[in-house]
Design a protein around this nucleic acid. Structure first.
Lengths: 338, 338
DNA sequence: TTGAAAGCGCTAACAG
DNA sequence: CTGTTAGCGCTTTCAA
């Protein structure tokens, strides 16, 4: 009734347990007859090696942590699927951790992953601190960080950077070509690095399209629907009112759209809205959302692949610098200004 | 640079490692001065016990698996949050596994969880097999199953059952009172137990509201948007055409709504649609979706709590039978028939 | 009140 | 080619 161990297999096969270990791991040559005896015993007893025992010895657990802000943020599910897709092929299991946008909670989660000796951690929460990364690295845990930058991060972790500039540029160019001049931006919380990056890309894109960025309206949101709603309340009071708004993510954009509709505006006639992320929903709401798409699933795959490479390299694994591009997707929430 | 072990702590504190272990786990009385020495050494060295070593001895890993169909199905994120909420308080980490609606993949994932000696598994995928449950139970792993029933499941696992009848009844009653008589149902794949349960609840509710269930139209969907679209294609061809449809889940309902809109129907005037799940989206699309709500987050909490109880009880833990209720939520996708 | 020592189930270096 | 043995880092008897 108890889990069968390597000893019982060895006994049944009439060999030593090291032989059993070796045939199972193909780690040294074994005479065919002996091999067969072992395999037979394994089969008959239904033996499955205990990974925790193996981990104690080998210092590898075949597990990795994935730290995200909040699964119910539609940005993440596809990323998770990408991670799992490659994890599965390598027999890795993924600990999913939601920081709930809370730094303290995030740190506790990381510590718990460290205690469990995961082989690596993918940091994808927007709430990040160097402390978390250090905690991992000091314990020889490989780290991949999505879309974050800090002076001394580079030497500790691989990074995946999202090139927002390119997609945002396309979006702004489209808006300007459609006659928009007063274009507002609803950013994420500006204490987040990634929010600042997007904001700066926005300003830069304005300039490149010949619009004076110093006049641009920036409203700080929270990357959620509610923030979009609130931002709209401010937006509506401005004179002259912006004719277009580029939000830091799709949820914010949807918040704007729904608030605008509640306020009796006719979208996109009265206001053009651009999101960012291209979550599933974006193509399905009405009006469908023009947005800046990013390859979420591919990001997940890349992150896990990168982690596996670092793990395979061991000790002083190289840190890779990856970049993924974004693209403007034109739908119905943007229109030529009248 | 290497992880510090209990031995180094013992040496530094000038005590035996068993003493260190005991003060850390408060598992036997220790003289205050000795205790302080140990604590000091722990502090100075930044010692953190290795959970994998501990697990090898104690047979508990403080990890659990959560098997779902697919994170990008909006039913799951809230459930996950509920699970994690209680897991976090007990220092449990959760392996998230997506079966992708694939039985074979599901079994492999379960085996991998078994190999990693998780303390428990929560089965919440719609693609289930007894083989998976057995695989877990045979290895003394505690099991909680959501919304599934099989003759011999009861003795192996705790179950959480969703009482669909109550919510579906409310929905049907509302439709009938609004004048609907030709009410169709788009079910999930009828090889799934839970799809059959909902279908039967639908038929029963019709009868209770005085509509002949033998005349009812049932179309099989796939619990996804695409299935809803396809079902609509069939629906539209029927004469007489149903005036209302109750879908097996919200995604299906949305598929119907969007297909109907594409086909030029005016909703809800031309067709009343009821979903099931009350995903976030339901309240936000237009027209907003009348639906049968279920307490997703609470389900997650309950599942994890149940699992923890079983784990705490050990050996012959009691299996609990829980039920959660559903409720009809009236929004704009249903209307009085004309 | 504390320590020594025997494992938990594996892997791998060493010997034969 | 195979077996013996020494750990991995803990917990927990058993003795002192």
């Amino acid at each position: 009734m108890n889990r069968v161990t390597i000893n019982e297999v060895a006994k049944r096969a009439g060999v030593s347990k090291s032989t059993v270990s070796h045939v199972l791991n193909k780690t040294r040559a074994v005479e065919e007859p002996t091999r067969q005896k072992v395999l037979k015993a394994v089969e008959e007893l239904g033996y499955r090696p205990s990974l925790v025992a193996r981990s104690l010895k080998s210092k590898r657990t075949n597990t990795a942590g994935l730290l995200i802000s909040d699964v119910s943020n539609p940005f993440y599910p596809d990323v998770i699927l990408g991670v799992e897709e490659v994890a599965f092929t390598e027999d890795y299991s993924i600990f999913l951790c939601n920081t709930n946008y809370d730094l303290e909670r995030g740190l506790k989660l990381v510590q718990s992953l460290v205690d469990k000796s995961v082989d690596g951690i993918m940091f994808m929460s927007s709430s990040m601190s160097m402390e978390m990364v250090q905690e991992a690295v000091e314990n020889r845990i490989k780290v991949v960080v999505l879309d974050w930058e800090e002076s001394n991060l580079q030497e500790m972790a691989s990074t995946i950077t999202i090139n927002f500039e390119i997609g945002i540029q396309q979006a702004i160019r489209h808006l300007v070509e459609s006659g928009h001049r007063r274009i507002a931006h609803i950013s994420g919380p500006l204490n987040l690095w990634t929010a600042r990056v997007r904001k700066n890309a926005f300003l830069k894109a304005l300039e490149q399209s010949g619009v004076d960025p110093s006049q641009a309206v920036i409203i700080e949101g929270d990357l959620r629907i509610e923030g979009g709603r609130k931002a709209f309340e401010q937006l509506i009071k401005l004179t002259p009112r912006p004719t277009a708004v580029v939000a830091a993510n799709d949820l914010t954009a949807l918040g704007v759209i729904w608030a605008a509709r509640n306020a009796g505006l006719d979208l996109p006639k009265d206001l053009s809205v651009v999101g960012l992320d291209d979550i599933d929903l974006a193509s399905k709401v009405s009006p469908s959302l023009s947005t800046i798409a990013l390859p979420r699933r591919e990001i997940g795959r890349l992150a896990m692949r990168t982690l596996l490479e670092m793990i395979a390299q061991g000790k002083d694994a190289e840190k890779s610098r990856l970049t993924v591009d974004t693209t403007f997707v034109l739908r119905q929430s943007t229109e030529r200004v009248r």
